[in-house]
Design a protein around this nucleic acid. Structure first.
Lengths: 243, 243
DNA sequence: AAAATAGTGTCTATGAGACACTATAGT
DNA sequence: ACTATAGTGTCTCATAGACACTATTTT
């Protein structure tokens, strides 16, 4: 880095953006939050919410700003994912994107979906457990929808990251409301991992993990024995910062 | 991303750099490859090799170029680590850095150390197993050395990533010569994890992992029973690409 | 009482740690 | 023969899967 920034400012350098892969759990399946593009390129296609990074703005602050401005969401789980830096990923020119991923319980999205003109589409993961690659995104008619830019890759990397992380980091809770049953949490893990899990050992593992605290309350309104409601036990760590 | 890149080019936007945290194993301990800075800021301090990303150059290509140009190293394990995007991380102005990490066996460095004026300093990890944070870098006198920019954080994130990855991904081999004994590999794992490992279960785990292939040869010149030499079994995956 | 899921107790298989014991090079 | 490490066999302990059995709510 011999060059001074001052000297470089007059020469072209890559643009820097953030894109947000926001996932939620809906009807037992992972869904992604998408926006309909109105301008070229990819006009009319669906894309992840994103923005350029401002000169006096930290990269993670830019990611939080996108969620607030374009989706009306604050204080959600948000973490850096991967930086996508291919030369031709944006047909407009050289744009490097620092992708982030966010996790939100579906209930929190209800309020902002129409106000911010957001779309929620189901994710189909066409590769085995820890492999990686692009995902498919399907509409209500179950037909695959094409996303703008490399956003299907970004969503794929998000799922891959989640799959690698959910077994040892408390991220499953971010997709659930504050109180949930063990079966709710099991279904989150199954949706993320894309496979069935053993109920018994899941119960034992979570109960002995120290991550749950019993609320003493029960799920009501079910026509069978109600399950106990748990809460995620705050461990005093910050939120949305580096793992 | 309503704005067009063409329209934005006339306005200031962040600069984009890559920095490389290259680790190796020397005398049973992790060491980092560092350069002595000759210009402000941090003139005289040690820093990671880095460079700005060119407009027609992919980010991972920039990282490979830095290793080739500044260290004379090609075809080494190189992976994206994390993007450091704080506003004030570079006193010259706004520079976001896509940090990468590289792993190289110490033998490969011998040839380039003096030709490229490189320094190899030992890393001290002051935090427990999976926590994270900055590391210390100590010189021959065992005194801590101050690094330029946020490079101590980048090295810390590298160790954290390695610790999280070495148990399930074949990265330990990247720090060893092509042929090695099980004890060599054990020492790599111990240096990365910063704790002693059980020899017996390590042996069983690695032998049954399918990652090793026996060479039939033995380590020679030792005053006791010689250990069998193994080779890393290529699994057909690419190298240095995304996990 | 019937239905359906919640939750408990126990058996088994697997893998890690511990440790005793045998093997093999150099001196 | 002695020494130091390589490598094997076996016992124990912790954890996941499997499954039988009991508990609790609504209809």
């Amino acid at each position: 880095m011999e060059e001074t920034v001052e000297g470089l400012d007059r020469f072209p350098h890559p643009h820097l953006a953030v894109d947000i892969a926001l996932l939620t759990l809906h009807a037992g399946a992972l869904h992604a939050l998408l926006l309909r593009r109105t301008e070229a390129p990819f006009a009319g296609a669906l894309s992840l919410p994103g923005s350029f990074v401002r000169v006096r703005e930290a990269v993670d602050a830019a990611a939080a700003r996108v969620l607030a401005e374009k989706c009306g969401l604050r204080d959600v789980f948000l973490e850096q994912l991967f930086t996508f830096g291919d030369v031709k990923r944006d047909p407009r020119g050289r744009v490097v994107s620092v992708a982030h991923y966010a996790l939100v319980p579906a209930a929190r999205l209800q309020a902002v979906m129409t106000a911010y003109d957001l779309q929620l589409l189901r994710i189909v993961v066409p590769w085995p457990l820890h492999q990686g690659g692009a995902v498919q995104v399907v509409g209500e008619d179950q037909k695959a929808v094409r996303l703008a830019f490399d956003h299907a890759d970004i969503l794929g990397t998000t799922v891959q990251r989640l799959r690698g992380k959910i077994d040892y980091a408390p991220v499953g809770f971010e997709l659930l409301p504050p109180q949930f049953t063990l079966l709710d949490l099991l279904e989150v893990h199954q949706a993320v991992l894309g496979r069935e899990l053993n109920k018994d050992s899941f119960r034992r593992r979570l109960l002995s993990s120290g991550l749950l605290s019993a609320t003493g309350r029960q799920r009501s309104g079910v026509a069978y024995r109600p399950a106990a409601l748990f809460r995620f036990r705050a461990t005093g760590r910050g939120k949305g910062k580096k793992a």
